[in-house]
Simulated scan of single mutants.
Amino acid sequence: MSNNILVINSGSSSVKFSLFDMSSESESASGLAERLNTAEGEITIKSAEGKINLKLEKSDYRSTLEVIINTLTEQGLLETLPVAIGHRVVHGGEFFSDPVLINDDVLGKIKDCIPLAPLHNPAAVSGIEAMTSLYPSIPQVAVFDTAFHQTLPPEAYLYGVPYELYEELGVRRYGMHGTSHQYVASEAAKRLNLPAEHGILTAHLGNGCSCSAVVNGKSVDTTMGMTPLEGLLMGTRSGDVDPGLHQFLHAQKGWSIDEITDVLNKKSGLLGISGVSNDMRSVEQEAEKGNKRAQLALDVFHFRLARQLGGLAASLPRFDALVFTGGIGENSRETRALMLNTIKIFGIELDEALNKTNGDERGVISKGNGPTAIVVNTAEELMIARAAQALI
């Protein structure tokens, strides 16, 4: 009997997907469909058999998802239809604190959260509706980036604005990357054999970045807020800025709210400061060549990260481990070294040899008797597949 689960991550112009054989929790195939709803739509599928590149004759969501299923079947990677389909959904508001089987009510609430994630939730809705139309008999599960952070206490999630805005519009901090933070915190606790009572800081560092404070497996604070724009400096996102900046830019530049938001989301961060790239690797390379703006971008990135981690530590009753994950966290030895040398107050002593190899067999990159620094590769797609399996 088939035990395959397909995981879908629908973006505004792309669909990422992974196929898991849950009898071994192994990834059978993965891929990316890009440039959806254009004449240049294409799809790449990777498996043990190699890589396949296909031109999409029709690149709407429905047609693209049908091509994914058909191609996986033709390649012998999917003998029968998946037993379930798991969807990554960025924002679940206060509606969802756990993964859920999708029905009309759930889909309606995901749509209700579109104002909180206007760039992300519409794409998830399109993916869900397309799969429901194509394969109505396959159970579908929604896994929310925000769900893990629903354990934040009010003092951590409320803004200092009129309370009525929270009551009427849900204006509060929700946090993102919850699936990743939950996985790496749990994995670190297992690898380090931490006691039931423990405190962990997790740093998910990629093009999007966020950190969380996790106590006994539950999120108690995080850096992202109502939207993914709050918090750390990121690839193209500004992170925290003075709210008065919007009025200032409108008055001085004549920009609309939409234009200002676009600048803060797409033209800021590492890209905005360096003028080079949103990719940490490219910025590091330029800094090594003596590019001062590239070096400045790195300095701001690391300073903001250290400051946020220091603030999150205030939410921990004890501090056992700092976890690095995400594309930067898992691969940038320079970032990890700079961070641990910057936050010396944490008492974490870097083992330079282990850091160069991305850690020992457990991922540990520190030494001494202080808190442990550890690298854990995130596995968001596997977490979504597990959640889907648990609900069918």
Rank of each mutant, 00 (worst) to 15 (best):
N9G: 12
N9C: 11
N9A: 07
S13I: 07
V15M: 01
L19R: 06
S24T: 13
E27D: 10
E27S: 14
S28V: 15
L32D: 07
L36M: 03
L36N: 01
A39P: 10
E40Y: 10
E42R: 15
I45K: 08
K51T: 13
L56H: 01
L56T: 13
K58M: 06
D60F: 00
R62V: 01
T71F: 09
E74M: 04
L77H: 11
L78C: 05
L78K: 10
L81R: 12
P82T: 09
V83Q: 13
V83L: 08
A84M: 03
A84C: 04
G86W: 00
V90A: 15
F96M: 13
S97I: 07
I114C: 14
I114L: 09
P115C: 05
L116I: 11
A117E: 07
N121L: 03
V125N: 01
L134G: 11
I138D: 00
F144L: 00
T146L: 11
A156N: 11
V161G: 10
P162V: 06
L165C: 13
E168N: 09
L169T: 10
R173S: 05
Y174I: 10
G175A: 09
T179N: 12
Q182N: 13
Q182V: 10
Y183P: 02
Y183E: 03
A188R: 03
P195I: 06
E197D: 14
I200Y: 08
L201R: 04
L205P: 02
N207V: 07
C209I: 11
A213D: 05
V214Q: 01
N216M: 07
G225D: 09
M226P: 00
T227C: 04
L229H: 12
L232K: 06
M234D: 00
M234A: 03
T236I: 01
L245W: 08
F248A: 09
K253H: 12
K253I: 04
G254Y: 02
S256Y: 05
S256P: 00
I257S: 15
E259T: 15
D262S: 14
K267I: 02
L270K: 00
G272R: 02
I273F: 03
I273N: 04
V276C: 09
V276T: 05
S277M: 01
S277T: 02
E284I: 03
Q285T: 12
E288T: 15
K292Q: 15
Q295C: 05
Q295I: 03
D299S: 07
D299L: 04
V300S: 03
V300N: 07
A306L: 12
R307V: 12
G310R: 12
A313H: 15
R318Q: 14
F319S: 10
F319G: 06
D320V: 10
D320W: 13
I328T: 05
I328S: 04
E330V: 07
N331A: 13
R333H: 03
K344H: 11
I345C: 11
F346C: 02
F346A: 11
G347Y: 09
L350I: 15
E361R: 08
G363P: 00
K367Q: 11
A373G: 13
N377D: 09
N377T: 14
T378M: 03
T378S: 05
A379C: 07
R386S: 05
A387K: 00
L391A: 00
L391V: 01
I392F: 12
I392L: 11
